[in-house]
Design a protein around this nucleic acid. Sequence first.
DNA 1: CACTAAGTGGACGATGTGTCCACTTGCTGG
DNA 2: CCAGCAAGTGGACACATCGTCCACTTAGTG
Lengths: 210, 210
Amino acid sequence: MTKRTDLLTGLPVTADGSGPPRERADAARNRARVLAAAEELFAAGDPAEITMEDIAKAAGIGRGTLYRRYPDRASIARALLDEHERALQSEILRGAPPLGPDESDPAERLAAFYAAMVDLLERHVHLLLGAETGSARYRTGAYGFWFTHVRVLAADCPDPEALADTLLAPLAPEVYRRQREQGISPDRIKRGLAALARGVLTDSGPKSPE
Amino acid sequence: MTKRTDLLTGLPVTADGSGPPRERADAARNRARVLAAAEELFAAGDPAEITMEDIAKAAGIGRGTLYRRYPDRASIARALLDEHERALQSEILRGAPPLGPDESDPAERLAAFYAAMVDLLERHVHLLLGAETGSARYRTGAYGFWFTHVRVLAADCPDPEALADTLLAPLAPEVYRRQREQGISPDRIKRGLAALARGVLTDSGPKSPE
DNA sequence: CACTAAGTGGACGATGTGTCCACTTGCTGG
DNA sequence: CCAGCAAGTGGACACATCGTCCACTTAGTG
């Protein structure tokens, strides 16, 4: 159930029980071509510079065909990104601590989340830059998930709602790319974020009881 | 001296001592019109949607005239923003603590810097969105200043270089707009950022508690 | 008052977007 | 095997924005 993946993957909605409008073979082949070509193009250069025409041409199809499934560049990047993000979301919901559920230590959970996101960013910055440039980031379903997760982790703070966006800001793909271009390694970024996680979430400040 | 403001304000370079190529009256009038019109347009709607044509039309001049001084939308926004940012920079360099120089308490200085930036954002988000959309933020001179400031404040941390971009990320105009649109008041944002500043920079605190 | 260079504005070519629609083709059921 | 049709295709089209170019205008000067 809940197979309404059409907006993300471009797959046709499998209507409930009734006659399912199957996807034609050539259409499937073309989608595969589009995703393969887009993956390559995004990785090759600045994703903001890639045009729909470029993708169509690289995939060997016409512009009309491309637009039929993907209304813009971002939706293609999101389709490529989707499975990776789902994997991480599943880890968070059902995996082992410190990433997965763990009542005791929100600071370590946040640090683990940061580390996992850095791994995701390191592997797929180009896709994230293609999908979430600027404010578009906040309109994706994924951001909603991260937001909720962080807000819950910050539940003991005075204002979790206000903190959540603040704590997610350093994970914006533009920030990550900037840091990497400055010569900062993923590990250093992780350590910085871990310090931030512990500093903010470790039981209120200097009087840490033990 | 050092009047080389042409890139920021569009003013002609006053060559050293020799014959200064004065600005003509009609040119000055038109620049004023451009800035006034742009200020209004930026405030009215999403700055990313404003075109050079819109600004030229609103200012009552031709496109060619507009391009003569401002190569793009961002440079106009920056010209409008410049004096406000300079004022804050001057406060940081020469003002009174906690914003100004103060050897004793980097955490409070960072909190004060955050508060001042929130004030700036609250008054001029539309201009900042016009000037620094996405990665363009890192290419402005202002970002370099903030970066250096924060890096110095974080000097006692393990990796100030890596922390600086991380600590500046929540001040991205897109983040601020998002939070305000979520109904979070400037004061709540300030308090969240203050907590972050103290959590990360207060030394004694959470260092390997267990 | 006439000269000159700074200043002006709109036409222009290039590029990208998204839509439209006449044609093609994969999948049936007869 | 074939015919029908709906899904699928691709390129032409209309539109928007960009940035440049250059013939004309005008402010300032001697």
